[in-house]
Amino acid sequence: MLTVLEPEGLYPDTALEDALFAGRIRLLRGGGESGLAALPDALCAEAEGLFIFRNWLRAEDLPRFPKLRAVVRMGVGYDRLDRVALAERGVAVCNVPDYGTTEVADHAVALALALRRGIALHHDLQRGDSPAAWTQVETPLIQRLGEQNFGILGLGRIGTAVALRARAFGFDVAFYDPHLPNGVDRALGITRCRSLEALMERTDTLSLHAPLTRATTGLVDEAALRRLRPGAVVVNTARGPILDLDALERCLRDGHLAGAGLDVLPIEPPATGPIPPLLAAYRARESWLSGRLIVTPHSAFHTPAAYADIRLKSAETMHEILTSGVSANRIPLQAE
Rank of each mutant, 00 (worst) to 15 (best):
F51Y: 15
A120M: 13
V72P: 00
V295A: 10
I275H: 10
F65W: 04
P332C: 12
L28C: 10
G77R: 00
G159W: 06
T139N: 11
L153F: 15
G156P: 11
R202I: 13
V104A: 03
R69W: 07
D221H: 04
S287N: 12
L225G: 04
L248H: 12
A70Q: 03
A260E: 09
V72T: 04
A87P: 09
Q136N: 13
F21Q: 01
G23W: 06
T217Y: 05
W56R: 15
V76Q: 02
V235R: 01
Y307H: 11
Y99T: 02
T135Q: 15
N329L: 01
A260G: 12
G261P: 10
F301C: 05
E197H: 12
D13G: 08
G156I: 06
A305I: 08
L81S: 02
S327R: 03
P304E: 11
I119W: 13
A105E: 03
L219T: 07
D61Q: 05
R167I: 01
A108Q: 05
T272G: 02
G259E: 04
F21D: 00
G170W: 09
H123Q: 15
E268K: 06
L312K: 12
L278T: 06
I310M: 14
L243P: 08
L62F: 07
A258L: 07
Q136A: 15
R311S: 00
V184H: 14
R192M: 09
S287K: 14
E336W: 12
T160P: 03
V295T: 12
P277K: 11
I25E: 00
P97E: 00
C94A: 12
G189M: 11
E8H: 01
A15T: 15
P241S: 13
R58Y: 01
V72W: 00
R253I: 02
E17N: 05
N182I: 07
E268A: 12
A168H: 07
C94S: 08
L278A: 09
L113G: 10
T139M: 07
A132S: 15
V71T: 08
R29C: 03
L212K: 09
G255S: 08
V137Q: 14
L16Q: 14
A92C: 04
P269V: 10
T160L: 04
T317P: 00
R117D: 06
A120P: 00
I331Q: 04
P66C: 03
C251L: 13
G35H: 08
P7H: 02
Y307L: 15
R250V: 06
G154N: 07
P297H: 07
L180Y: 08
E147F: 13
G32F: 07
L219N: 07
H302D: 14
A22G: 12
R29S: 03
L5R: 00
M1S: 14
N182P: 02
A281C: 14
G35P: 05
A247M: 09
T101G: 01
S287I: 10
I190H: 08
A92R: 11
S324A: 10
G231I: 10
I25M: 04
A232T: 06
D221F: 03
S130T: 15
E60V: 07
V137G: 01
R226S: 15
L145K: 10
N182L: 14
A85T: 11
L57I: 01
